[in-house]
Simulated assay, not measured.
Amino acid sequence: MIKVDGVSKHFGKIKAVDDITFEVQEQENLILLGTSGCGKTTTLKMINRLIEPTSGNIFINGKNIADEHPETLRRSIGYVLQNNGLFPHYTVAENIAIVPQLLNWDKKKTEKRLAELMEKLHLSADYRNVYPNELSGGQQQRIGLARALVSNPPVLLMDEPFGALDNVTRANIHKEFKALDELKRKTIIMVTHDVQEAFELGDRICLMDKGKIIQSGTPADLLFKPANKFIKDFLKDQRLQLEFKAIRLTDLWDLLPDGHKQINVSTLPASTDLWATLETFRFAGAETITISKNKNEIKTIVFEQLMSAFNQYKNKQAHE
């Protein structure tokens, strides 16, 4: 869906982005991860032509974005900012309806879509006529997301979308983000400096430093097959928690004992990560958990069996 080919951006003698290449598949969530000044936000802004590259090409769905008018391009791409970018003198409804107005939607179509998104994002209809400063940070961010999604664009760009939120609000929005069906149908590039967020939300991660991509791969690739010492050092302080978020039950499937479904136990899909599984054991009070895979395959495990499989998996990765 998105191809960045040999792209650079120079500001005078400073190479903000230095000859990077990557691709994003349809309906994939790619995270651009790195410290401040590594070039990730500049890269994002080049994809919707808020910044023009010094060299290289960017393609969306096979078309070179340089051949499109910038305003037309931006109307076909959802864009979410860290500070939500809402207009303070517009109501919630007016903020969300900006793009539909630019696209000349009729009032009925706009109203229907607005109501649909507010319901999906757990926003009461009572908020339609209030102004952004009357909302909490989490509510403002949901409005910013609704505005980006309202025209149903195939591509969504997100620049530190949850960076201004407190930890509790951010954790809740992460859960909503992963569950929202609208987002599962999008091709997403998200910028963050939060390693935990990248591992929780990303299908793949591009770890950047000094304008270059140091390694691109799945969260598990970065943890268990780091390209160099920089990658190891970048992740080492949070490694155990990252492992719990990167490894999913499906990765451990062959290491888990066979078992049949039992009554009155929690059931999780095999796509669940270890962190969420451990939370089920701890906070849901489950003594056993049933895992379902492909509808026909079922295993029931206790905590000790999960941790045994986790350790076997880690040992296996270490020796490959």
Results as ranks from 00 to 15, higher is better:
Ser8Tyr: 11
Phe11Met: 05
Thr21His: 02
Thr35Trp: 04
Ile47Cys: 05
Ile47Val: 14
Asn48Met: 08
Arg49Leu: 09
Thr54Trp: 07
Asn57Val: 11
Gly62Tyr: 05
Ala66His: 13
Leu73His: 09
Arg75Asn: 13
Tyr79Thr: 01
Gln82His: 08
Gln82Gly: 03
Phe87Cys: 05
His89Cys: 01
Val99Cys: 03
Val99Pro: 02
Arg113Ala: 04
Arg113Leu: 00
Arg113Trp: 02
Leu114Pro: 01
Arg128Tyr: 12
Tyr131Lys: 11
Leu135Glu: 05
Ile143Leu: 07
Leu145Arg: 03
Thr169Ser: 15
His174Gln: 15
His174Gly: 06
Lys178Met: 14
Thr187Lys: 05
Met190His: 04
Phe199Tyr: 07
Leu201Phe: 06
Gly202Asp: 09
Gly202Met: 11
Ile205Ser: 01
Lys212Gln: 15
Gly217Arg: 01
Ala227Cys: 04
Lys229Glu: 15
Lys245Gly: 01
Asp251Lys: 04
Leu256Tyr: 08
Pro257Gln: 09
Asp258Glu: 13
Asn264Thr: 01
Leu268His: 00
Thr277Asn: 00
Thr277Ala: 11
Glu279Thr: 07
Glu279Val: 03
Phe281Glu: 03
Phe283Asp: 12
Glu287Asp: 14
Asn296Ser: 14
Phe303Thr: 04
Gln305Asp: 11
Ser308Pro: 00
Gln312Ser: 12
Gln312Tyr: 07
His319Lys: 11
Glu320Asn: 12
